[in-house]
């Protein structure tokens, strides 16, 4: 009897383990485009999806999503639009408006039973975007994002007396809520706000803005590389994390560093004005007007060692 039970147990185990082979991702295929049924102004990227953001054109209108992935994964890839209420208050009057947020998710489960090497790429065509939310382990790249003047949607701000520079110009908000992906954002707008809340993602920002504001929270561990971002007016940097933040501005940098992360700045082409405030607990601040741009190179995992060597050489200068 015991022997029979053992045999049954062995057979059952073999069947269960054997069935694991059926958990495959399937052949990688580019599927017919999905057309979203509503416009969106915010996009949130989750899970492990590699995303390319492209401005819409005649062939690909806004809301077109092209997905390339395994045949067995496609049913678990969702592209949903969710309403988001945004508020503003002016002169005691609170006004709200509903924007649409496109959320990209990979809902496939039991991934440990499948091969970890698989393709999951998405190309999203947009019309207007003023907020990017990253909570992803994927690789995200964009074409030139021009931001969006979302203030014009608030009826309470239509009073010309309330019009400010901000309300006339396009904004772009980058929010990193989590993940460990690699995000490369190209932009050309008036005001860029970057808020790195949590995670180990590397963010590379490039392009031209008038005002830039970069915040790294306590749980920000990845690099914020703004070496190729040119802020013509000012660049405000708050470093609370353990990471490296690279900022660059033509005119003015205002920065504070409250943790062991490093903030590096580069002045470009003409003298700037540096103001720092707050305290620099165990942090480092390089005030060296003659920083040689040769020391600065685009960061990558493979080049980080060389990069750190260059940092050391800067530090060791008298």
């Amino acid at each position: 009897m015991k022997r029979a039970l053992n045999i049954v147990l062995l057979v059952c185990t073999s069947v269960v383990l054997g069935s694991c082979n059926k958990f495959s991702n399937g052949d990688t295929t580019t599927f017919p485009p999905r057309q979203l049924d509503a416009p969106f102004q915010i996009i949130e990227m989750r899970d492990d999806i590699d995303v390319v953001l492209k401005h819409s054109d005649a062939a690909n209108p806004a809301g077109t999503v092209i997905i390339t992935t395994g045949e067995n994964l496609i049913d678990g890839i969702s592209t949903e639009i969710e309403p988001v209420t945004s508020f503003t208050t002016h002169n005691g009057i609170t006004d709200s408006i509903i924007f649409n947020k496109l959320v990209l998710r990979n809902n496939n489960t039991l991934g440990f039973l499948r091969p970890y090497d698989y393709t999951l790429e998405m190309t999203v065509y947009y019309d207007t975007l003023f907020e990017l939310i990253f909570n992803s382990n994927g690789v995200v790249t964009t074409d030139t994002l021009r931001g969006y003047n979302h203030w014009t949607n608030f009826s309470s701000l239509n009073d010309t007396a309330l019009i400010t520079v901000d309300s006339l110009t396009a904004n772009l908000l980058i929010e990193i809520q989590g993940g460990s992906g690699n995000f490369t954002v190209l932009t050309n707008c008036f005001r860029l706000m970057t808020h790195y809340q949590h995670g180990t993602s590397d963010l590379t920002i490039s392009g031209k803005v008038v005002r830039a504001e970069t915040n790294g929270d306590y749980d920000s561990h990845g690099i914020i590389d703004g070496f190729d971002l040119e802020a013509s007016s000012y660049h405000l940097v708050n470093g609370y994390g353990t990471n490296i933040i690279i900022a660059k501005a033509f005119n003015q940098i205002i920065a504070r560093n409250e943790n062991i992360g490093h903030i590096y700045y580069v002045r470009y082409s003409k003298p700037g004005k540096v103001i720092h405030w707050g305290h620099f607990e165990n942090g480092h601040w390089i005030e060296n007007d003659t920083v040689d741009t040769l020391y600065w190179c685009p960061l990558s995992v493979t080049k980080r060692g060389a990069y750190m060597d260059s940092i050391t050489s800067i530090r060791s200068r008298p």
Binding site: F112, Y116, N137
Partner: peptide
């Protein structure tokens, strides 16, 4: 073995 990362960020290291 497989990793069971209870933090999303560590899932970039999913492997056997």
């Amino acid at each position: 073995g497989v990793f069971w990362h209870h933090h999303f960020e560590m899932q970039r290291f999913n492997a056997r």
